[in-house]
Amino acid sequence: MLCGTDADIIEVAGPSPDLSFRMRLLRSENPDVVNGLLALLPFQSFLLHVVVAGETIYTPAPSISLSSKNMVPRQKGTVYWNTTSQSVCFCYGAVTESTAVNQFAQVLDEDLPKLEALGRLVYRETVSAKTPTIVQMTMRLPGDNSAPKTQPHSVVGDKFDGSWQSAKALIEQEIRSLRQPQEPIDIKRIRLGATAARAGSEGSALQTIVFLQGFLSTLGPHVFSRLLAVSYYPEMTVPLMVRQTREFLIQTFNHFHFLSDLGLRRTAKLGDVYSQALDSVTTMDEYRELTDAMRTLIQLLYRWLHLVFPWHLKGRLQSRSVEEADGMPSLAVLDGVNP
């Protein structure tokens, strides 16, 4: 039985009252994440559904904490902070992944049916839909009905003056726009196949969105998150950190320009701004502030791609038992083809 006071309660408001629930914060078990979350409230975003971890929904969020202080197994009602993917996650049913999670809250027992109903709605409207729907949510303190201010889609202009502060401001302007429950124009065009990248001479846009999904799923949660983790190594210096970052992200293969080629046009300009701004950082804290902003931007683009990815095609891939698969023919080797 959970203990605490009403001050420990957070409301998660879904599309309607019967799809909204309350959770109790675990202050003593995970103070860093709890305090980080409270500083964001009221927080508005959109909900997504996992594709391999069972019955769990989540919402992308700003960086809250890099610490993992309350690693526990998942169960129905667990609310946890996914550090690498920068997401607040809500387990509403069965879990099919064994990794422990960084729990910071627990949904109230009496509200579990509402969480489950919301989870099934998100599943139906996102990963199970041919054309997904944006499911909004707001996290807030009880009784706080003030809505976060919306902001129009930003345009990267001439505000960059070479400093990491101005670069961070430009990136964060884009982040605030991407957090709004409105499909970004680049995402819409990718979803509808209006991209130039292709395989050979065919005009299918499937390859582009598949590649983007896989590429972004590692770039933000793993590459950027690892760079930030390495920045805390006591032997690491700022010049070496900057050099390593450029080696990973820009030298030989410019990740930001590649994403632009695949349809995420804003990443090329913002990536150039980020790269130039690295020359102005003088401390690890400055490096982390700038790099975490860029990581958050990449994570949000990944979440939008996750929302519009054609998961409904899963019905065309037949499921089989291990025994059935092992008993079927392997791929043939092409031989004797006439020109």
Rank of each mutant, 00 (worst) to 15 (best):
T138V: 15
D109C: 00
Q103E: 15
V127L: 07
S20C: 03
P184C: 04
V88L: 15
A293N: 02
D18E: 11
Q165I: 11
V135M: 07
A105Y: 00
R265T: 15
R243S: 15
P42F: 01
G119H: 09
Q276E: 14
V95P: 06
T208D: 05
T283D: 04
A117M: 04
I64P: 04
I185Y: 06
V88S: 11
R243L: 12
A39E: 06
S177Y: 12
L290G: 05
F211I: 11
G214I: 04
N70A: 08
Q182C: 07
F46C: 03
L313I: 10
D109K: 12
C3P: 00
M294P: 05
D186L: 03
E172S: 06
L262S: 02
N102A: 08
L313R: 11
P132F: 05
A325S: 12
L240V: 12
V122G: 01
T267N: 05
S67R: 13
A13S: 12
P62D: 00
G157M: 10
M284P: 01
G157L: 12
K69T: 12
G4H: 09
S45F: 02
M23S: 01
D161M: 07
A196F: 09
G200D: 01
R303C: 10
S67V: 08
P152V: 04
I64F: 09
F90G: 08
N254S: 07
T291H: 01
D158S: 13
P221Q: 07
A169R: 12
K269F: 03
S128E: 13
Q151A: 11
V101Y: 06
L300Y: 01
L118M: 02
V238R: 00
L37T: 03
R24L: 02
V52D: 14
E323C: 02
N35W: 01
V155T: 15
I298H: 00
